[in-house]
């Protein structure tokens, strides 16, 4: 069984169009175990109960932004090992620096190609 058959990914994005774009990209990559949430706090609660291997999270979200979600995940023993990729429209130096301090594994800017997403994920989890 290949890595992509085992990999479980949670997508967190408040915009349904963006969630669909990301999850459909994962489908194209053959990653079938992907789940989506539109709220960082809800995602956090679900991840604490059922951790995944990797989180792909939007940065701009109304209640809990992507870096706040990352920070919260790193505080919990159950979720601190989860890989975290930030998906953002604008990666400012401040976001990158703050993300690195919090333990961000990788970052991808929108709009991305399927190949870019594949490369981004592989830098965190290894060849798919």
């Amino acid at each position: 069984m290949s890595l992509k058959d085992q990999l479980r990914i949670m997508v967190v994005d408040d915009m349904s169009t963006s969630r669909a774009i990301i999850t459909n990209t994962l489908d194209e990559l053959g990653i079938v175990h992907n789940y989506a949430e539109n709220d960082g706090q809800v995602a956090l609660n679900k991840l604490a109960a059922n951790p995944v291997h990797l989180v792909l999270s939007d940065y701009n979200m109304p209640k809990m932004d992507g870096l706040q979600l990352l920070h919260a995940l790193r505080q919990n023993r159950m979720t601190q090992q989860i890989g975290f990729i930030l998906v953002t429209g604008r990666a400012t130096p401040e976001i990158v620096q703050q993300g690195q301090q919090l333990g961000l594994n990788n970052l991808i800017e929108k709009p991305f190609t399927t190949a870019q997403m594949k490369a981004c994920i592989e830098r965190v989890v290894g060849p798919l």
Binding site: M15, T17, S18, I21, N24, T25, G89, K110, P111, T114
Partner: peptide, 16 residues
Amino acid sequence: GSTSPDVKQGAHAMEL
């Protein structure tokens, strides 16, 4: 198609 470059570009413009 929701993963086409165009849809991603448009969604990006709207999201910004």
